[in-house]
Design a binder for these strands. Structure first.
Length: 827
DNA sequence: AGCACGCCGACT
DNA sequence: GTCGGCGTGCTC
């Protein structure tokens, strides 16, 4: 006799209490269609309501179940939604990042395909006769019945919208009285785009049919005639040309005159724009060497990470493309990650012109439907290459040959939402699974990656020469303290001013970089010291002159600037600090004949505005471009010969251990925008701390010297890569609750870690208020664990257990505990 | 997250 | 008695 088989299922709801797997029975008829990665509907909870679930283990041995077995009700997709390897990845992420199962699963499927329950409700047909026996109803019940009287069917969610109270308990009481009927109904946000194709039924004698049709059936005749003449026709076309309604089509089908076929359509994310054929460049010796170094690993199907340390403009992209070419030749697949797709339109363009429609593009600017289509093209094997931002690392390929991470040091690869994964770590895991090659590329590698090359975990490949033997730009460091002593109070040093003038004369372009948008960074009262702060956050407000308002860059809050001090009533409100908007205004005043553009979040919020500005720069319609870090990455303007860094030390003194690294990276990246064409570029770096090693090293383009100095600092303070950090953030609107939970958590942590004798090498900081103590109405307390233990698993286990214990014990809905493993942002 | 169950006060 | 509000505990 056949034995029932059992599977483990993850339930799709967000509760931390259901962050586990549940054992379900597989009905005999479905056994061969259900395996790891299948998406199913299962009855769940006391009411046995249907809910979506994902099979994560199969062939479970259940000798003597201690609970009542329920059975899978339905399979949701024709093909397994998730591959076995990606389910493995989800399990790894859950342990690595301490996230829930379902958060991990959501990463590997497209957004919007989940089925959410939205039941339909209607009154019983014999409601009125029943009602006479059951006379009295409460006000709420009456309100619900009123609505149901005017609508035959209504979904739970629309009912909720129409009432001023939450009707769920009322619906339940009416159901218990047998007065309403509930029908299961599920909806999802995204569906494949479809089109109906209409054709005359096979073997239909049109002539005969026409005779049988009634005289007044004019429209029906028209349709049949049209189909007779034109053959199978799309419904949209038929409707447009004949102006016919859907009812008519339905009745013709019921009579058996026509057939309707539904085909899937793809949303076209590129429109009709032409793809120019890319020319394949002659490789330099350096590029060739690198490719020859990597290829053997691809051929031998051997997992190996590489770090390509290549100066800006050394032609890394060409290396990527050639390697991908090889992978595709082997009929394997490739993933390319870029920091932020909107900032790298030029790179996407190059990939498209080289590989054409073999590419799928995944990024956040696409609509849900477009993303769904691109995901499906990958899943079905219609494309071989996926290019995109962080989340593209989950592209559902089965046969990966290579993952490339461009600008691997970028912080955008670290997710700030749950699960707080790092795309490079995920890429490592996937490459190991597939015996694939991992390529990390950067001009300024992260310390962690470079450290791994020193340790032999990654192979290091170096590219030192720029294209056409272009030299790296000359970098001049200007001591702004000296400028001040010489009586120059302007934000432009004398030499920057002079060089800009020179560039204007020569007709060459200039970029001015300041990593802060807005006009003034804070406003303050001179008589009492009041500073305008966001009412929801512990942040000072930035003044935006163009729109004349103060705005909070953390929560988006906006208000008008006060005329007088709200605290003491004085008129002496002063505006301090400088943002890109102010730099723009000063540039206009200083260089009245120059054509000036600004590129930051404020000028690029509208769709297409960024592309427009970039086009104008390329066409030489802009002399001076002012921008935030948006301009630092990937942009290639050959006529830019001068870059001015207005305030290089702006982020140097943030309370963050990566501050120096970020500063070095940013200066180097921005400097790389200069001199990409024939002429030598110049960079002027203004700073109040010219002696800082991060700034000194950037002057000589000397990553290695920066690396050694920074590593010495990291080692003496035991910062990564010499330790591993965990940031536990406790947030909530009630400060007292937040503090209470934070204290409880820290006490437990200290006790437990001591218990396993890790206290010697592990240090717990806090609990205490975070550097940004309040954001969006929420108080923020944190605990930081700095650990040198080689095996982090025990520590993570403890962190996780304590969290679930605390959540269970306190039953807190108003306090959130968020755990960030290897955090990038600890403010 | 849902949902049931149990307890309690308010209201017929 | 019955409704509904709220806290508690469970979900294969």
């Amino acid at each position: 006799m056949k034995r029932t088989s059992y599977v483990e299922i993850v339930i799709n709801n967000k509760s931390s209490h259901t962050n586990t797997t549940y054992t379900y029975g597989v009905p005999d008829g479905l056994a061969d269609q259900i395996s790891i990665g299948t998406r199913v509907m299962v009855p769940f909870g006391k009411g046995n309501r249907l809910i979506e679930g994902y099979v994560v283990d199969d062939n479970i041995d259940l000798a003597a179940p201690t609970f009542k077995i329920k059975y899978i009700q339905k399979i949701l997709d024709e093909e397994n939604l998730i591959s076995k390897k990606l389910i493995e990845l989800c399990k790894w992420m859950r342990e690595e990042y301490l996230c829930t199962y379902i958060d991990a699963v959501q990463c590997v499927i497209p957004t919007g395909i989940s089925y959410k329950s939205d039941r339909k409700i209607r009154l019983r047909d014999d409601y009125d006769s029943m009602q006479q026996m059951n006379t009295k109803l409460s006000d709420k019940q009456n309100a619900v019945v009123e609505v149901l009287r005017s609508y035959k069917h209504i979904t739970e969610s629309s009912l909720k919208q129409m009432l001023s109270f939450d009707p769920s308990s009322t619906i339940r009481s009416l159901e218990n009285k047998n007065m309403v009927i509930l029908e299961d109904h599920f909806k999802k946000e995204v569906n494949g785009l479809t089109e109906k194709i209409i054709r005359i039924s096979e073997n239909l004698n049109t002539f005969e049919v026409m005779g049988k049709l009634k005289k007044n059936a004019v429209k029906q005749r028209q349709i049949l005639n049209y189909l007779q003449e034109n053959g199978a026709t799309q419904w949209s076309e038929l409707r447009k040309n004949l102006g016919v309604s859907a009812n008519l089509i339905d009745s013709l089908r019921e009579k058996g005159f026509i057939d309707i076929e539904i085909i899937e359509k793809k949303r076209d994310i590129f429109g009709k724009e032409e793809i120019l054929k890319d020319k394949i460049f002659e490789l330099t010796d350096e590029q060739n060497q690198i490719i020859q170094e990597v290829i053997p690993f691809m051929i031998n199907l051997q997992y190996q990470p590489f770090l390509i340390h290549g100066v800006t403009g050394s032609g890394k992209t060409e290396v990527y493309m050639q390697l991908i070419g090889k992978v595709v030749e082997q009929s394997k697949e490739a993933i390319v990650l870029v920091p932020e797709i909107a900032l790298t339109p030029q790179m996407i363009e190059r990939f498209r012109s080289r590989f054409g429609n073999q590419i799928a593009v995944l990024h956040s600017k696409l609509s849900l439907g477009e993303r769904y289509d691109e995901w499906n093209r990958i899943k079905r094997g219609e494309v071989k290459i996926a290019i995109g931002a962080r989340s593209a690392v989950f592209a559902p390929f089965d046969n990966l040959g290579i993952i490339i991470v461009d600008e691997e040091h970028e912080h955008t690869y670290k997710s700030e939402q749950n699960p707080k994964y790092h795309a490079v770590e995920v890429a490592e895991f996937r490459c190991k699974q597939h015996n694939a090659v991992l390529i990390l590329g950067s001009a300024t590698p992260s310390l962690e990656s470079y450290y791994k090359t020193e340790k032999g975990l990654y192979k290091r490949l170096v590219m030192e020469t720029r294209y056409n033997q272009n030299k790296l730009p000359d970098i001049h460091i200007i001591d702004m303290r000296a400028e001040l002593l010489n009586g120059n109070k302007s934000v432009f040093s004398e030499s920057l001013h002079r060089e800009i003038l020179k560039n204007l004369e020569m007709g060459e372009q200039t970029i001015l970089f300041l990593n802060r948008r807005g006009y003034s960074t804070f406003i303050s009262c001179r008589s009492c010291g009041y500073v305008a702060k966001c009412p929801h956050c512990e942040i000072s407000l930035t003044y935006h002159k163009n729109n004349h308002f103060l705005s909070c860059h953390y929560c988006g809050y906006k208000q008008n600037p006060p005329e007088t001090c709200p605290k003491c009533g004085s008129k002496y409100i002063k505006y301090f600090g400088t943002g890109t908007e102010k730099i723009e205004k000063m540039t206009v005043e200083l260089f009245p004949n120059a054509r000036i553009a600004r590129l930051d979040l404020d000028t690029t919020s509208r769709k297409g505005s960024m592309e427009k500005i970039i086009r104008e720069i390329k066409q030489g319609k802009v002399d001076i471009l002012i921008g935030t870090q948006m301009i630092a990455k990937g942009l290639d303007f050959p006529n830019v010969t001068l870059v001015g860094v207005i305030a290089a030390d702006m982020n140097l003194n943030l309370p963050e251990f990566r501050a120096a690294e970020r500063t070095f990276q940013l200066i180097t990246q921005v400097a790389g925008r200069a001199g990409r064409g024939q002429r030598l570029g110049r960079v002027i770096v203004q700073t109040y701390e010219p002696e800082h090693f991060a700034i000194q090293a950037s002057q000589n383009h000397d990553f290695v010297s920066f690396y050694h100095q920074e590593m010495a600092m990291r080692e003496s303070f035991s910062y990564p890569p010499f330790s591993r950090l965990v940031n536990i953030m406790i947030t909530g609107e009630e400060e007292a609750d937040v503090i209470k939970i934070a204290n409880e958590y820290a006490t437990e942590l200290k006790y437990e870690l001591k218990g396993i004798d890790l206290s010697v090498q592990d240090v717990i900081f806090g609990p205490g208020p975070a550097a940004l103590a309040r954001i969006n109405q929420k108080y923020r307390w944190q605990i930081i664990i700095k650990s040198k233990a080689i095996d982090q698993k025990v520590i993570r286990g403890i962190i996780n257990t304590i969290r679930s214990d605390i959540l269970k014990k306190n039953n807190v809905n108003n306090v959130n505990i968020s755990i960030d493993i290897n955090p990038f942002n600890m403010l």
